[in-house]
Measured scan of single mutants.
Amino acid sequence: NITNLCPFDEVFNATRFASVYAWNRKRISNCVADYSVLYNLAPFFTFKCYGVSPTKLNDLCFTNVYADSFVIRGDEVRQIAPGQTGNIADYNYKLPDDFTGCVIAWNSNKLDSKVSGNYNYLYRLFRKSNLKPFERDISTEIYQAGNKPCNGVAGFNCYFPLRSYSFRPTYGVGHQPYRVVVLSFELLHAPATVCGPKKST
């Protein structure tokens, strides 16, 4: 009989979030998941669920729940959905087409922007091929755009693959930082360890 609440607040209220290319994953298990708490945590810009209804979450049980978190800019949030393409979905964080879970995003301009520009958040701009779903690539190998090998040196047709967002508070919403948490629900042929409040007794 599990009584402890799932530590969603640790994920959502973390002081620092990860850069999207090096997104963070927390496995959540053996706890009571009260998803209604999430609705009250922040004024969400996005709370979209796929393959599951957000209002039914509190009635369900899962084997595992994974919470992935990272920062992107406002106009990239739409890429965090099944079947999307674009720089983020292709080279940084890719959801599977049959994704079961929820994408939660909110504006973090007050936390993640600086007047002089916050350069701490990076994204991958160049990659030889698209990522597979939930693949994480943290390599910093020089990207070869031409025929000549780069031998690890940046220059003509040889690019450092990561680029930094420079978040400034005066930017338009599309270029402001957004914190994203992706909850993916895993149903294996194994005992369910993460249940809503109704199912945990």
Rank of each mutant, 00 (worst) to 15 (best):
V11E: 05
A42P: 15
C158E: 00
Y165W: 02
T193K: 12
T55H: 14
G117I: 03
W106C: 04
Y143C: 02
N24Q: 14
V11P: 04
C31S: 06
P82C: 01
K114E: 07
K26Q: 12
N87I: 15
V52Q: 06
G83P: 02
Y50D: 00
D112V: 03
F44R: 15
C6S: 06
F47T: 12
K198D: 14
V77M: 09
Y143W: 04
A14K: 10
G146M: 01
N92G: 04
F45A: 15
S164G: 06
F45R: 15
K56G: 12
V180I: 11
S164E: 05
Y165P: 01
I28A: 08
F47N: 07
C150E: 00
A105F: 09
L188I: 14
L122H: 10
L111R: 12
L95E: 00
T15I: 09
V37D: 09
L125A: 10
D68L: 04
D97F: 10
N130C: 11
T15K: 13
G172N: 00
F17Y: 10
N107Q: 04
L183I: 10
F99K: 02
V20A: 07
F167Y: 05
I80H: 01
Y91I: 06
V181W: 05
C49D: 00
R179P: 00
R25K: 03
V32A: 08
T140K: 12
A154H: 07
A89W: 02
F47Y: 13
F134M: 09
V103A: 02
N109Q: 05
F156N: 06
R136P: 03
S200M: 15
T55M: 14
V182R: 02
P149I: 07
Y66F: 12
E135D: 09
S19L: 02
F126N: 04
T55C: 07
R16N: 15
S29T: 14
S113W: 02
Y171T: 02
G83F: 11
V52R: 06
K48L: 08
F62M: 11
D9L: 12
G86L: 01
Y50T: 04
Y178A: 08
V173M: 14
F44T: 14
S53Q: 15
C31K: 06
G155S: 06
S184V: 12
T201L: 14
Y21E: 02
D112M: 03
Y119E: 10
I104S: 06
L162M: 07
F156H: 09
Y119W: 06
F45S: 15
P149Q: 10
S29V: 09
F8D: 04
R27F: 10
F160A: 13
N1M: 10
N147T: 07
F17K: 03
S36K: 13
N118C: 03
V153P: 05
A22Y: 09
G117E: 03
N107T: 03
L125S: 12
L38D: 04
A14P: 06
G101F: 02
A81V: 06
K198H: 14
L188C: 15
D34E: 08
Y119P: 10
F156P: 11
S139W: 04
V52S: 06
S108T: 13
K110P: 08
F156D: 04
S129N: 14
P191Q: 14
Q176F: 01
N58M: 10
I142K: 03
G83E: 09
V77N: 04
L41F: 15
Q144D: 07
V182T: 05
I142T: 07
N87E: 07
A190K: 13
R78N: 10
N157I: 02
F17R: 03
K94E: 00
S116R: 12
A33R: 07
K48Y: 06
Q79G: 03
Y35Q: 09
R168H: 03
S53I: 09
Y93M: 02
S164A: 11
N109R: 06
A67E: 05
L57I: 10
C6N: 06
W106G: 05
P96N: 08
S166M: 05
E135P: 03
T55N: 14
Y121D: 00
P7E: 12
S36E: 11
E76R: 03
Y165R: 01
Y121K: 07
F126R: 03
K128H: 14
Y91P: 00
T15G: 09
V37T: 14
E141T: 13
S19Y: 02
N64S: 13
K198T: 14
P7I: 09
V153S: 15
S116F: 07
L60G: 09
F70A: 01
R179A: 00
F12R: 05
V103T: 06
Y121G: 00
A81H: 05
W23C: 02
S108V: 04
T193Q: 13
C195M: 07
W106D: 01
N147C: 06
P96A: 08
H175T: 01
L57H: 09
E186A: 08
A145V: 07
Y50G: 00
C102N: 03
Y39P: 12
P169F: 05
F156M: 07
I104N: 01
I28M: 15
V181K: 01
F12L: 10
K198M: 14
P133V: 05
R73E: 04
Y39G: 13
Y93K: 02
Y39E: 12
V71K: 02
R78Y: 07
G51R: 13
S36T: 14
G196D: 11
R163W: 15
R78D: 08
V182D: 00
A154T: 15
K56V: 10
S116M: 10
P54Y: 12
S166Q: 06
P149R: 10
K56Q: 14
S139H: 08
D9P: 09
G172V: 00
F12H: 04
T63I: 09
W106T: 05
P54N: 10
D34A: 07
V103N: 01
F160Y: 14
T193L: 12
A22S: 12
E76I: 03
S129E: 14
Y143R: 02
V52C: 10
F12E: 04
Y171W: 02
N157Q: 02
R168E: 00
F12M: 09
D98I: 08
V65C: 11
N40G: 11
P43Q: 11
Y171S: 01
G174K: 06
N107E: 03
P161L: 04
Q84R: 11
Y165T: 00
K198F: 14
P54K: 15
N1S: 12
L162Y: 04
P191S: 13
N4P: 11
G83C: 09
F185N: 05
S53D: 15
D9Y: 11
D75L: 08
T140R: 12
I28Q: 04
I104M: 12
S53R: 11
Y121V: 05
C49F: 05
T3I: 09
A145F: 03
S113H: 01
N147L: 06
I80T: 02
F160K: 15
L162T: 05
V194P: 12
Q84H: 10
F99L: 05
V11A: 06
N30Y: 09
T85P: 07
N118I: 05
N157L: 02
A33F: 15
F185W: 10
S108C: 06
R163M: 15
D9M: 13
C150F: 01
P149S: 07
R163H: 15
N4K: 15
D112T: 03
F99N: 01
F17I: 06
N64C: 12
V71Y: 01
A67G: 03
Y93F: 06
F167W: 02
S200P: 13
C6R: 05
A190F: 10
D137E: 04
N147W: 07
V173C: 08
G155H: 06
V173R: 13
F134N: 10
F99C: 02
K132H: 12
T100N: 11
S200T: 15
E10D: 12
F62H: 07
F44S: 15
K132I: 08
R25W: 01
A42E: 11
C61M: 07
K110G: 10
V115P: 14
C158R: 03
G155M: 06
F45E: 15
K199G: 15
C150L: 00
